[in-house]
């Protein structure tokens, strides 16, 4: 199933996966899209945790070269999503930080997706037992988020250094927008967190104001941000973040929490407090 070159365990080289920096999210898609979240093939993404029937039939127990029986993990669904994962830096960092959490990167550019695929496979070979909980898929997250995740399935969503789409005419192509936040709120569980960061001030303002104006999101307070180990990774783990740091650029961060819908009744307030 896997390409020959992965077995070497050598990391793929970016120079062979050059791609344009932008991709049109409005164009019709020509890649397979899962019909429903239950059609997402976990055995393809996480063979270590979800061995396909074929693997077991072949008695190919040492899928990752570790043990015969795959280790079941408590959370059998994908919980973290990196939307527009680029070259996958964040996923790779998160993989070891949350070894029991399944996470996926979504990327629209096929060459970049191929790179991340190769990168993950190489890491898996080089580090037996590790990096089994991350994967990537080529898809248009702006159109197909509901095809991948059911209601309240996710606990973290990442939107790191997205395409700024400066022209006002193209603002509807921005990955954070008032209407798309409705869909992100749908897939996030109550208390789930959305992380956004950019080095473009205008886009930073835009993302913050979209989140601030949305009734289902609330800003995460500063002291919680300091406690959150993920926040530091937003700038340090991603390729884009490193580039900005190298050039001494400034970044604009907005981290918001999914809250239960207000106005249902007074009790929802109480529930919210007790959740923290």
């Amino acid at each position: 199933m896997e390409d020959q070159k992965n077995n070497s365990g050598r990391l793929p080289r970016k120079r062979f996966y050059r791609a344009r920096a932008h991709s049109n999210p409005l164009s019709d898609s020509h890649f397979p899209v899962p019909l429903t979240p239950s059609h997402v093939d976990y055995s393809l993404h996480y063979p270590y945790f979800f061995p396909s029937d074929q693997d077991t039939a072949d008695d190919n127990g040492d899928v990752a070269g570790v043990s015969q029986a795959p280790i079941p993990i408590c959370n059998s669904k994908i919980r973290f999503v990196d939307v527009g994962c680029g070259f996958g830096g964040l996923l790779v960092s998160l993989a070891t930080l949350f070894p029991d959490t399944l996470m996926i990167g979504m990327e629209l550019r096929d060459k970049v997706t191929e790179y991340v695929k190769e990168r993950i496979l190489a890491l898996r070979v080089a580090n037996p037992g590790q990096y089994q909980n991350i994967s990537v898929d080529r898809t248009n997250s702006m159109k197909y988020i509901p095809n991948y995740f059911s209601k309240g399935q996710l606990s973290k969503m990442f939107f790191l250094f997205p395409d700024p789409h400066f022209k006002e005419k193209n603002h509807r192509r921005r990955v954070i927008s008032p209407h798309l936040l409705d869909e992100y709120a749908y897939t996030l569980e109550a208390g789930g967190i959305i992380y956004t960061i950019t080095d473009v001030e205008e886009l930073g303002d835009w993302m913050r104001s979209c989140l601030e104006g949305h009734p289902l999101f609330e800003a995460v307070v500063e002291e919680d941000l300091e406690k959150d180990p993920v926040v530091k990774l937003l700038t340090s783990a991603t390729e884009e973040g490193q580039k900005v740091a190298r050039n001494g650029g400034q970044t604009y961060r907005a981290v918001y929490k999914r809250i239960a819908p207000q106005a249902v009744d007074e009790n929802s307030e109480v529930k919210l407090v007790s959740m923290d």
Binding site: P146, P178, L181, D182, E183, A185, P215, P261, A263
Partner: peptide, 27 residues
């Protein structure tokens, strides 16, 4: 046309937008 049906809670103040998605009928 993208194969989807979206069910959204129709809010009391719809002029502020309908943000709470009840379900997607996918199939």
């Amino acid at each position: 046309r993208d194969f989807k049906i979206r069910i959204t809670v129709f809010p009391k103040k719809p002029l502020d937008g309908a943000h709470e998605i009840q379900s997607f009928c996918l199939g």
